[in-house]
Nucleic acid binder design. Structure first.
Lengths: 150, 150
DNA sequence: CCAAATTGGTTACATCTGTAACCATCCAAA
DNA sequence: TTTGGATGGTTACAGATGTAACCAATTTGG
C-alpha cells in the first residue's frame, strides 16, 4: 500500500493540532477580555505586559509579549486614546518613549488578573497532576526546538 | 507581598504560551507551502483535506480542518480558480457540491506531503522519545479540556 | 566631523479575517 | 400543499494583520 506514504493525516499533524488547540484556547480566553474590556489580543497583551513590568518601551513590550512592532504601535495608540497608558519621552534617546499604565489602565489590568488566573486554573484543573507538570516541560522543549536551540 | 497575587506572568501564562508556540510553528511551516505553492493557510488546509479524504463537501471540509465556512468558501474559490479542484453538484440536494482535487491539485498535494512530514519529523526529532509520546497525549487531553468534555 | 548604516517607532496598502446578512434549497408541521 | 424554520454556501462590510516604505534620531566608521 504505497498510498499510505502519500497521505498526510491532518487531524494528527502536529502543526495543525497545535494551532487548532491554541486557537481554541485563545479564542475562549479572548472572550473574557473582549466582553469585559473591549480589547483586542495585542491590546490585552500590552495591558498585561505593562501591568506586569511597570514601565517599558514599545520595543521591550514587543519582545516580552512576542508582538510585531506594528501591533505594538497600534495597541499602544489605542490604549493611549483610552487614557489607559501614558508615554514619557526618554531623556537621552529621543526616539524612545517609556510607557506606563495610568490609574485607569492599572485598574483594568487588576480587574483582569484574577479572571485570567481563574481561566488558566480551570483549564489546568481538568488535567491530572502529571499532565500539568508535563505540559510546562513540553512547551519549553518545543519552544527550544522550533527556535533552533534544541 | 500582596503584589504577587495581583500580577500575571505573561511568559508562563498558558493561553499565551500555547498561542505563541503554535504561532511560531505554524508560521515556520507556512513558509513551506507559501513559498512553494503560494497558498494561504485555509487554502493549504483545503488542499490537504481533499488530498487526504478524496471528495468532500464544503461543510465536511470545514469540520475536518476546523475552518469557518467563510474561510472554506474563499479557499475553495481560489483553488477552483487555479483549477486545482472541481465542484460536482449533488444529485439529491442542490445546495451541496462535492469537491475533489484535479490532477494538478493532487500533484500539488503530493508535492507537499513529504515536505510536511519532514517538517513534523524534524520538529519531533528534537525531542526525546518520552516527550514525543507525551505531547500526543497532552494535546488530546487539552483539547478535551477546552471542549468541555474533560 | 560627516556620511552611511542602524534603530525605535509610525503609517500606507493590500490581504485576511469574522460577523452578519443574505440567497437558495430543503425539511417538517399544520 | 403551504409556510416557517433549518441548512449549505456566498457575499458585504468592517476590523485586524503583515510587509514594506517611511521618518526621525542615533551610532558607527572613515
Amino acid at each position: 500500500m504505497a498510498r499510505q506514504d502519500d497521505v498526510l493525516e491532518l487531524e494528527t499533524f502536529l502543526p495543525y493540532r497545535l494551532y487548532h488547540l491554541a486557537d481554541l484556547v485563545s479564542r475562549e480566553f479572548a472572550r473574557i477580555y473582549k466582553d469585559r474590556l473591549g480589547l483586542t489580543r495585542p491590546e490585552w497583551r500590552t495591558l498585561s505586559g505593562l501591568g506586569q513590568s511597570g514601565t517599558m518601551t514599545a520595543k521591550e513590550l514587543g519582545e516580552q509579549s512576542a508582538m510585531h512592532k506594528t501591533k505594538v504601535s497600534r495597541a499602544v495608540a489605542e490604549l493611549e486614546r483610552r487614557r489607559w497608558l501614558t508615554r514619557t519621552p526618554d531623556e537621552k534617546d529621543r526616539r524612545i518613549e517609556h510607557l506606563a499604565l495610568t490609574k485607569t489602565g492599572l485598574a483594568a489590568y487588576l480587574d483582569m488578573v484574577p479572571l485570567a488566573k481563574a481561566f488558566e486554573q480551570e483549564l489546568l484543573g481538568k488535567l491530572d497532576n502529571g499532565s500539568r507538570e508535563a505540559i510546562i516541560q513540553l512547551l519549553g522543549k518545543l519552544e527550544s526546538a522550533i527556535l533552533g536551540r534544541g
